[in-house]
Design a protein around this nucleic acid. Structure first.
Lengths: 352, 352
DNA sequence: ATACATAATTGAAACGTTTCATATTTGGGA
DNA sequence: TCCCAAATATGAAACGTTTCAATTATGTAT
């Protein structure tokens, strides 16, 4: 268990009494006579030989390293995404370089260059800037949840449009007559813009009047929500809407609190459906913050890795959409759930 | 912006009309005549030269890579820790290899070896197994929040003992007469065990009878809590405790819900203080889940990186404790806060 | 103008792999 | 026993850096 001097393939070759090339073959699983294979394996064990990643990388120009470029891991959505990506890579013997660019375009570009310098085999990006513009054509990359002009780069995302429809349909199913949509969006376009399209489509389909708050994200979210709320109050104090489709669970949760502060009961007076499927404490056996259109984050992550790797050997679809699903989170009037809490079993992920 | 053929130092030397060694000096910031410096810089720019990490690593045996070995990033505590570590490394021009071992000892050891094989410059570990046993003496490593026999490895943690005391003192300050302690612990020892010691010490100091639920973590947390609760009910249905110090915010939150389900009001009937300082949606401008003894996670992360790097050149303290602080999270009766919510400004981290 | 100390530059060697053209071994058939 | 094709083994070259001993340029004092 000591790593005193770090033995090399040359040492192994000498110890085993074979040539360098033979050792290389054994290490890389290339057929070799049984006799020599055993000699080499014994020598490797005896010397605690470990492949030197740098020497190998220098020759092969492969690293088994993938850079994940995301804004941060404080946000539970990104955090879980990172975890699933890590797992998907680990299964394949690959490693994850974590790059948190805080959503700052310049930092995203810096990281991109750093990753390329470090000879990563590929990049999975959830960025605000159009990273495609800074990547050599053909360099393996997958973009998650974002939409850019450059159609060349493969993208993976949830079916946000279907999610927007589903949110409306669920609200209608649970008895809503007037679902509104609330959104604070980034200045950069993204796949999630389709949630709005889905909402609008569903409104049209079911003969509803679209009604929404859709502004650029800012620090005055509460003020804007309050104004929206006030605009929708009848003279008698009642509301002119009874359902909310929030662009994200977080927005839904903010609105939930505001409504509660104003004395409205959730879900009795107003039902809320968010988007993402964020669990409290990041624990999938916990409650959701709000009823939600849940993104299949684990499958999305798996897909990202799959497509990243596949593009080395084949052409991959330029857009892959995975289906979303509605899940109860306490803010909807589901039949059989009179506002009661969810599961009782409390399994925890490793906790601090 | 094309990376056609990836030029080398030799190309740069030729282009600039200088020797290889001169190019190397310019790249590594070693003094060179102004004239040559300019020639080389121009050539580098002209050829879009980028250092090859593998060639460099092969010579220097340095990678500027640090492995972070944690259970996962779903848990917001670990997720934020990872983010801060990433930031602290980025500031120093270093990169983060993210290793999520799910708290499985064998996986932790596997990752450890992988990291060493990949010639990381150091490891920051938040593990369950005693990784020190699998590391060559002298290999740069910092252990966060864990306590192992092997005193040789530098450890960083919050002052858990002081935190345990502080929790009791705060509960007393807010009017509690009988604070209990709730904990579901790992089978592995850790620095956080000191929270219990702090609780006991404070009980003794203030003449209180210690009273706690302290069992190994399992899936029956709710059942055990319910039993604990029932054991502490008076014949009239009132409780024999009025304050709870929960080992983590999560445990505090579970107990909070249970108490609420049983009809107790928080904080009027029972006050709760957790530990960690977990924000909803990982957003530090959001609410805490419960009032909490907060770990200074950003400073802790910075300290980990600092100590990891320092040990290359100097002896570092074997244990570094950082102070914790109490923060209001809605589950305590603070003067001036009659159960009202916290801040109104809603700044968000980059959100999906 | 010369000598000498100092500063700057040079390029071969080495880091530990993989690759591949060449050499050696193997064993089955005559 | 001998030959030959097929299978296996060999080790030099190359990957792109850094390092360092040797060389050359520079500038100062005489």
């Amino acid at each position: 268990m000591t790593f005193q001097k770090a033995s090399t393939m040359k040492d192994v070759a000498k110890e085993a009494g074979v040539a360098l090339g033979t050792v290389s073959k054994v290490i890389n699983g290339i057929p070799v006579s049984e006799k020599n294979k055993i000699k080499v394996e014994n020598a490797i064990a005896a010397l605690h030989y470990e492949v030197n990643t740098y020497a190998r990388g220098l020759k092969t120009q492969k690293s088994n390293l993938v850079a994940l470029l995301i804004p941060n891991t404080h946000n539970p959505f990104f955090a879980s995404f990172a975890d699933y990506i890590e797992g998907a890579l680990y299964k394949r013997g690959m490693k994850l370089l974590l790059c948190c660019a805080d959503g700052i375009p310049q930092k995203e570009i810096d990281y991109l260059n750093m990753a390329i310098n470090n000879k990563v085999d590929g990049i999975i990006a959830l960025t605000y800037s159009d990273v495609g513009k800074y990547i050599a054509p053909g360099f393996p990359i997958v973009v998650f949840d974002r939409f850019f002009e450059n159609q060349v780069i493969p993208r993976v995302a949830s079916d946000n449009f279907a999610g927007g429809c589903l949110a409306v349909e669920k609200l209608l199913e649970f008895g809503c007559k007037h679902p509104v949509y609330i959104r604070f969006h980034s200045v950069f376009p993204g796949e999630s813009d389709k949630r709005r399209d889905g909402y609008l489509y569903a409104c049209n389909k079911y003969g509803l009047e679209p009604d929404f708050l859709d502004v650029v994200d800012c620090d005055e979210k509460l003020t804007l929500m309050k104004e929206f709320l006030d605009r929708h109050k009848n003279p008698d104090g009642s509301l002119r809407f009874d359902g909310v489709f929030a662009h994200t669970d977080y927005h839904g949760y903010l609105f939930l609190r505001l409504l509660q502060q104003e004395g409205f009961r959730i879900p009795q007076d107003v039902q809320i459906i968010g988007f993402d499927g964020i669990y409290k404490f990041g624990n999938e056996n916990e409650e959701l913050f709000v009823s939600s259109i849940c993104q299949p984050l684990e499958q999305l992550s798996e897909k990202c890795v799959e497509i990243l790797i596949a593009q080395n050997t084949q052409t991959v679809p330029s857009l892959t959409l995975l289906p979303v699903e509605y899940r109860y989170g306490g803010t909807t009037k589901e039949s059989g759930r009179p506002g009661s809490g969810p599961s009782q079993g409390v399994k925890t992920r490793s906790s601090s």
